[in-house]
Nucleic acid binder design. Structure first.
Lengths: 103, 103
DNA sequence: TCGAAGTGCAACACTGGGGTTGCACTTCTA
DNA sequence: TAGAAGTGCAACCCCAGTGTTGCACTTCGA
């Protein structure tokens, strides 16, 4: 099932995961390949990829002995739209209160 | 200074903070008032409010002996736009690769 | 002016998340 | 077919974040 809003944000609330995502946004690669270019162990990266996969932010495709991951934008866009909606609601309410106080 | 992308997401990556934000999005209130309606102590709420304030997601206004907080949408909208931009970039790249493979 | 309500500060406990290492297993390739 | 490369699983360490309690201090109102 689709993760909740806090869960999505938590998945994106880690620097290492953003490092991984930026790489995967430029080029699809395996966990071992990521471990070669990032300053953390492969196992750490695997755990992060699990989180990202759970959040629907990456796809995994098996190619023989390796698993190639790629960044997936659709969930990020969906999250963005929801956050935008909520942000607008808050500010709309604030503007309404303000005009009420001034009027 | 303005918090980084992972920092913003981390601030939003907690259920209790969303509980607080939702309340503050409907009605501005103090930490003590929040502690009355949420199942956590006032001190816990104060810490969360510090995080949210640091992220620019709430405003704090002193009114005599109490401090009234309100949810602020602008930072959330800014974050949303950035996430949307990044999501589009990822998918654009994927579509380019796909059409390259097919063509 | 005294008590109630609100905030500030500090110390403490507990859990989860991020990270590591080691080893077994699978798959490619020379 | 043996070794290199990749993944899977498990145990372990560490600390930052979440939450608590207790007490001092400020401010409002009857």
């Amino acid at each position: 099932m689709t993760p909740t809003l806090p869960e999505m944000c938590a998945a994106l609330g880690d620097q290492t995961r953003w490092d991984i995502l930026t790489r995967l946004g430029q080029e699809a690669m395996s966990a071992s390949a990521l471990a070669r270019v990032l300053p953390v162990s492969r196992q750490a990266i695997v755990k992060h990829l699990d989180v990202l996969s759970e959040a629907g932010l990456v796809t995994a495709e098996r190619r023989g002995r390796e698993i190639v991951y790629a960044a997936l934008g659709s969930r990020l866009n969906a999250l963005a739209h929801e956050l935008d909606r909520i942000g607008n609601a808050w500010d709309t309410r604030l503007r309404a209160l303000k005009s009420l106080a001034e009027g």
